[in-house]
Computed example of a mutant assay.
Amino acid sequence: MNSEATARAWDEALAALDLAEQLETLCRDMPQVGPAIAPPTSASELFRRIDRNADGRIDLEELAGLLEGAGRRADPTRLQELVARITGRVEATDLGPAELAVLLRLDRIADPGQRLQERFRLLDRDGSGHVSPDELRLCLEALGLAVAEESGGMDALIAAVDRDADGRVDAEEFRRLFQDAENRQRRCSNTSMPDRDWWGSLWPEPADTLLQMGLRPGMAMLDVGCGYGLFTIPAARLVESRPVVGLDIDADVLEQGRSLGSGLANCSWVWGDLRQLRQTFTTPFEMVFLHSTLHGIDDKVGLVREVHALLAPGGRFAVVNWLPIPREQTIWLGLPRGPKQEVRMGAEATADLVLGAEPELRLERTVPLPPFHYGLIFTKADGAIA
């Protein structure tokens, strides 16, 4: 069995369910849809699977079939209105690859946990609490997705995640599958989480770093891409009774952070996507902390705008990033560390990016963080924090 092909097959099935959900939401709410963009590779493959008659377009019947296969409401009139809005042509009745990619770029349900439960419910057709090979086959067929031969068929898909070897997938097994798929799909391809002990040796006094970056008692803080909670946990101690939230898309390291911070009543942990901060949180923060992550995010401007929307007036956006020096010079514990040099951003480039994305932010100060990092503190207008 080809494990990569099996993972791709699962990813395609989950992506098809996501797309069906987007179609239903769009048909119901009809928001403005942006201009067509070039489809990513994953969108091209998904397009080919949904295009059942292989004519290079996805028509209304194929879109309705996708919705029905996912157990969603299919309204032909609303589907046609959606297609017309995306294409800009009133008479349009089908979508091309680039137009389908518009849908894949739109926001999904913000809470991954909610999406996980919904995906499992759709696959578990008889409500037994398990997904059998037959249920999986029926769902994939209804979505127009045929499992590629190299993935080993339906039994191989089940076996790939069937940890107790009972021939079916329970909710916990599906949770692990879903989280792995989320991690593969995240848009932070140039970031990775170092070993916790190694990371801790580079930052032996994280509380001191937080103070240098402007965190003070009484400030609520969001730690974006918190990982093991290296900075989240000391932040919770520093701010006393105010809330500190750690957010990460990697469920395994997040769970380690949750365990390490279990004794702190004001510290909470959210499995979520940094591209959807405004949909995940409704309460503003006095500080948003972003450590060694910005360089690896595709939509950096979008992230800055998400952060700005969450900051309280006078709140601080604290960015810590790698110095733009060759990786071969970033030696720690005998080995080169950190991202490739070509993706590292200097302090000036980072400041230009942030200030260009959000004019209401101002650069408060630059903080040297030797040996390999620097910090930038931005403040939101309309107030001040001591």
Rank of each mutant, 00 (worst) to 15 (best):
G346D: 05
G227H: 13
F174K: 04
D126P: 04
A142H: 05
R316V: 00
A64H: 08
T25I: 13
E255M: 12
A165Q: 15
L210I: 03
R78Q: 14
G34V: 03
G69Y: 12
F372C: 05
L290C: 15
A171S: 12
H130S: 14
S44Y: 03
Q32N: 11
I158R: 00
L19S: 04
R175M: 10
G314C: 04
D250I: 02
F289I: 02
V102D: 05
P39C: 13
P243Y: 04
R196F: 15
P336A: 05
R72I: 04
D51F: 13
R316E: 00
D162A: 09
L376Q: 06
A160C: 10
K380H: 06
V343M: 05
E4N: 11
F47K: 02
G263I: 08
R57K: 10
T293Y: 06
A357G: 07
G246N: 05
R337D: 04
L274K: 03
G346H: 05
A265M: 14
A16N: 13
M213E: 00
E149S: 11
W269V: 10
D75W: 08
L247M: 09
I50Q: 05
C226D: 14
C226Y: 07
W203R: 07
G69K: 10
A265R: 13
V161Y: 11
T191E: 07
L19A: 06
E118N: 06
A181G: 05
D155Q: 08
L311G: 04
D111K: 12
D59K: 06
L290R: 01
D18G: 11
P31E: 03
E12C: 15
L310A: 01
S241W: 03
A15M: 09
L66P: 03
E21S: 13
D107E: 12
G356L: 07
A384L: 14
P284H: 06
D51S: 15
S151D: 00
H130K: 12
G225D: 00
P359H: 05
P368D: 07
V304K: 01
A236I: 03
I233D: 00
I233K: 04
P368C: 08
M213I: 00
R57P: 03
L353W: 01
T25N: 15
L106M: 14
S259Q: 06
R8Q: 12
L145C: 09
M30H: 14
T379R: 08
D29K: 10
I158M: 04
N266K: 02
F378K: 01
L247Y: 00
A74M: 11
L363I: 00
R168D: 02
D59C: 04
R187G: 07
L63M: 10
T293P: 01
P40V: 13
A148E: 09
T280M: 14
P206F: 08
P40T: 12
R278S: 15
G65S: 12
A5R: 07
L123Y: 02
H291A: 15
S192E: 13
G71F: 13
S128E: 04
R119K: 14
L310C: 01
D298W: 08
S192I: 09
A9F: 03
G88V: 09
R258G: 10
Q32E: 11
T379P: 00
G272Q: 04
A9Q: 07
P324N: 11
L23W: 01
R344L: 08
D75N: 13
F47Y: 06
W271N: 06
L323D: 13
E118L: 11
G218E: 03
G218M: 02
L310Q: 08
R176Q: 15
L100R: 00
